[in-house]
Design a protein around this nucleic acid. Structure first.
Lengths: 199, 199
DNA sequence: CTACGAATTAAACGTACGTTCATTTATTTA
DNA sequence: TAAATAAATGAACGTACGTTTAATTCGTAG
């Protein structure tokens, strides 16, 4: 046996990424073997190395591409010009929508950081800082113009991110609450958290 | 070579627990071997099996004992009789104090759930539900007597837990903020989140 | 003081791991 | 259509895994 009919490198690479993402999310990076990934897409483990140099690099690729897509999507929202209050609401809705959509990516992005080698870890960390800075800027803008009452914007940033991201632990698309209802609930709660006056 | 001078079963078992906790927290359950744990306490891997039947059981023990200590500590706070507002503040302070104190335990309790076999997972899950119910009861009590303005106590419970537990990701005992300052910040934020009127 | 159980070592078990390699076949390029 | 490259196989590499076992020594109870 050798090259398969209809085999295309980029497609196989994509299938590897997809499968690895799913298995890493479900069982954890360290608990998933290259052979398991390969078996799921009817491949031999060795063939994965045509597309990814190491298992570590495969994880890195998944995390980097997730963070870059997240940042691009947030930039595309274009909330720069909005008043702080509206920008915060936009962030909350965006974060919930995005994070409930790609549960696996979010999960491993927060779980598998410790399985990254130093350099890869720092790269991901930097991307996450950039994303969090987006929220922090909104909060500081709102503090400056009196829209929010916040004692420590840095802490509030981390508190809100944790609160929002936690949703991925229990959100189910066919659950008791629709995504829209959840968004409304979190907008309400967070408005209180930042001392936003009711509109 | 055989039994070591001064060796006591319970002490060795404790050292195994301590070391496993640290290594599991640092590298993840699946990424840590019995040999690594043993090496850290100058033991052979096989000796661990005098004290724990399997690696899985070792993880289970760590998680169960953590959750049980957490629940016992919370029960000992005795907030049953307090007005909802005061009880919530007590919960926030307790949760932050406790969770920043045992960062490793908290970490693996949230990280290693997926490495638990079905039965063990359900046991831990039940303990966590019991803890979360403590907060939810406070919230519902406060809603009933008008102390809080909350649209969905279940969601607010999970939001607050996520927000509070997130602190363990960045808290450092020698960081910019003291634990007392952090407590005050979170009491302030959460008061807003639940619509508690200023006192 | 002796016998017994607790604690440990060292070696081994079978299995699985990440990765490499020679080889083969399919596709693309010239 | 011939040569070059891309994609895959299947076997092998050395290493490490969780766990078991026989043998050995230490602590202690009778």
């Amino acid at each position: 046996m050798a090259r398969k009919v209809g085999s295309v490198g980029t497609e196989t690479a994509d299938k590897v990424r997809q499968t690895a993402l799913l298995l890493f999310a479900r069982h954890g990076y360290a608990a998933v073997s290259m052979r398991q990934i390969a078996r799921q897409i009817d491949l031999q483990a060795g063939a994965i190395y045509n597309h990814f140099p190491t298992k570590q690099q495969l994880l890195r690729d998944l995390l980097v591409s997730h963070m870059e897509r997240l940042l691009a999507a947030w930039d595309a929202e274009g909330v720069e010009g909005l008043p702080a209050g509206e920008a915060l609401v936009a962030f909350v809705r965006f974060h919930l929508r995005y994070h409930t959509q790609c549960g696996e990516e979010v999960f491993i992005s927060y779980m598998e950081l410790r399985n990254l080698e130093e350099e890869n870890f720092l790269d991901i960390e930097a991307l996450r800082k950039r994303y969090e800075k987006g929220l922090q800027d909104i909060l500081e803008r709102g503090v400056a113009d009196g829209t929010f009452r916040i004692s420590d914007p840095r802490v509030t940033t981390m508190a809100l991110i944790a609160m929002l991201t936690g949703v991925t632990n229990w959100y189910r698309s066919n659950g008791r609450l629709s995504l829209g209802e959840i968004e409304a609930l979190y907008v309400g709660m967070i408005s209180g958290t930042v001392g936003l006056k009711e509109v």
